[in-house]
Simulated scan of single mutants.
Amino acid sequence: MSERAPHQRVLRAIFVPARGQYDNIGDILLRRQLLDWLRASGPLHVYVGDAPDGYAQGLGLGPDDVQYRSFGRWYTAALLSAARGRASYVFKPGEIQLTLTGMKEHLAMLPVLALVRARHGRVARIGVGSRNFSPLPRALMGPSIALSNVSFWRDAATAGYLGQGGIMPDLAFASTGAGSNGADTNGTAGRDVLVVSMRSDLDYPSAAWLAGVRAVAADNGLEIWCVTQVLRDDDKCGQLAVDLGGQTLRWNGTAHDEQEQRLRALYRRAALAVSDRLHVLVGALTEGAVPAALLVDAKSDKIARHFAAAGLHDVSIASSGLSAAEITGRLQNLLGRRAAILAGLAQAQGELQTVRRLLDQVLTTESVR
């Protein structure tokens, strides 16, 4: 019988891109969470590109994190470190568009990945989801996936499409907001706000949609606040506030970390968050608000897929064809499920901690020969 090799903990430099949509605080939520996870596993070398200062600050980078604005310098550093056997690579989390443009990280980094693996480094992909599901991009993704030691997808459709990996809740669910696990898990006492945030690239909500939201707010004594978490939605935020008779928390696109804290403070007051933005709903949920995906575009299943991966179902409402009274009833039903929804969040956060421990083990454990 062969004797198993002992193991030792090895901390390699971890190269990770943290670029994203710089006008989208949701991208910060994902990337900051991953960076926080990774620090215990090795020194971070983070590519932020031409990110504005507010975005970089929102990532929570510390003095020990090596930050790169130049892709060339970051890429060269990764190659040199990999050649010395001192590098690992972790893909950025979030949504990928499986087009040639959207896949540039997965294709351009192949030489780095191959060298990392050849020199006994590790490659990980955590919390990634696909926007589209055509056959050719799947084939192009094959080498990148094959070079990964571990892959965790953030929804079942992506896992079924790309394979070779597990399913995990979206990283933004891992946030431990002050309102997500404290007192009042069975009711909404102390919560006097209904938050609204809608995408600017979809149709404007119908009269029935607006009336239904106004009615559920009135029935529960809630103030309506329309908020901007993605800068391009700001004009729509202002118009919704006018039509809903609500107040606004708008944003000029700077000081991302400050805007996130303003949003979180409001989410901690919210009984209900109505949005078609995934990370508005997740961010509000982690602060204790009930998420309601009151969709204008019924064709999209993105929110339902990602909440289902976290064990949370039936938070999406296709509003087309519903009367104001029916919309109010659906929203009221979600409010009545608050305790169960928060319990589901706690379970999802437990699953995420399991993924975190596995990721650390993959990145740091090495057999001693």
Rank of each mutant, 00 (worst) to 15 (best):
G165D: 02
G160R: 11
T354E: 15
P291G: 07
Q164M: 13
D155F: 02
W209N: 05
A124F: 03
R86W: 01
A146Q: 11
F91L: 10
A211V: 08
E95L: 12
T254V: 13
S206R: 00
R232Q: 13
Q259N: 13
I96P: 02
Y204A: 12
Q21H: 14
T328G: 15
L244C: 11
A340H: 09
G179N: 05
T99R: 10
Q353R: 15
A241I: 07
A310V: 02
M1F: 12
W209D: 06
R337G: 01
D23Y: 15
A183G: 14
L171M: 00
T248P: 01
T254A: 14
A159G: 03
Q239R: 15
Q67W: 11
P6S: 13
V196D: 00
D243V: 00
R214E: 06
S319H: 03
V10I: 14
E223K: 13
A289W: 06
N149T: 12
A304P: 02
V315E: 06
Y47P: 02
L363M: 06
D36H: 12
M109N: 13
G283P: 04
Y68G: 09
K299E: 15
A308I: 00
A51W: 00
L249G: 06
A211N: 09
L322R: 09
L162A: 10
G102C: 04
